[in-house]
Write a protein that binds this DNA or RNA. Structure first.
Ligand SMILES: [Mn+2]
Ligand SMILES: [Mn+2]
Ligand SMILES: [Zn+2]
Ligand SMILES: [Zn+2]
Lengths: 154, 154
DNA sequence: ACATCTAATGCTACAATGTTGCATCAAATC
DNA sequence: GATTTGATGCAACATTGTAGCATTAGATGT
């Protein structure tokens, strides 16, 4: 543990994040936050469910939905609409939450593009108020692109 | 009917669009295309269903889904993921199909932002291939913003 | 106009994703 | 430890989209 302030690392513990919003620190919320923090990619409700199965206690689908809803309401996590019909979730860290995402249409994975900003200052019609922008790029990820290049015949 | 080539107007008739792809010109497809062409906003499957009810014949949910799928496959229409959990559809016209969309989180409407481009040339990780970009801005539309400004209570 | 061929349709049944109501439990506070 | 209230678990439901298969109707040839 560093004695100097960790410069905007992933550091904030699940407990801290939850307590800071005046919410109850429950096993579900802690487990969800930690799973999201460990994951390299945004996770769908379903993928999260699978992760939590491995963990401590058994969890209900609905409880998981509600935990995720709460995290998003509090600004701890954010929802990504991207690829298929299910939401993906990721923890918001510092200011880097305005990044784009890449959706691979071959393997279905969503990748964070940390250094691609969503939208700077789009010109909106009069009276429109922008709250949030979502940029999703669709195509083939490196792995899937390579695979297609090699075995050409299916 | 102009004798000179109409400079990329909305002109193309449903028949023409369908026949150009070698598809069968059915009442469903024609009605769907015309409904989309008439609409100022991209329409969800459900909204389209409502419009078609008013029209000629009764239509099955599944048929509508399949007609829309076909239109997208052929590049006649395009899907927008935007707001809620349902796809929206709009006719692709000329080159202006790379525009952003605005999702009003109050009234749920999706508005085309014809002059906001989606993404110019984002820097992607090595090996990634971009096929399509989707930019959705979330917030309050002019009507909903105004409404909120007036009646502050509630 | 009629026969023929096949794509498109209309059912039914199903899958996937998310929501609502309500009784019970447990995290926080005293 | 008792109390309070937010979080959970369960059952039932809603919405959105798919799959299989028999029937219909758009295109084509005569
Ligand atoms: Mn991300
Ligand atoms: Mn549009
Ligand atoms: Zn991939
Ligand atoms: Zn609105």
């Amino acid at each position: 543990m560093p004695l100097h302030a960790p410069a905007a690392t992933t550091a904030a513990s699940a407990r801290e994040l939850i307590a800071a919003q005046g919410g109850r620190v429950t096993r579900t919320r802690v487990a969800v936050i930690e799973a999201l923090q460990r994951s390299a990619h945004p996770l769908s409700h379903d993928e999260l469910g699978a992760v939590l199965d491995g963990a401590d206690i058994a969890h209900d689908r609905v409880t998981l939905y509600r935990a995720l809803d709460w995290l998003v309401e509090q600004g701890i996590a954010q929802r990504i609409a991207g690829g298929e019909r299910a939401w993906r979730f990721e923890i918001r860290r510092g200011d880097d939450h305005r990044h784009a995402h890449f959706h691979c249409e071959r393997c279905g994975q969503i990748v964070c593009l940390e250094d691609v900003p969503t939208a700077s200052a789009p010109h909106l019609p009069a009276g429109f108020e922008l709250e949030r922008a979502e940029l999703v790029l669709h195509g083939a990820c490196a792995d899937c692109g390579r695979a297609a290049a090699k075995g050409s015949a299916r």
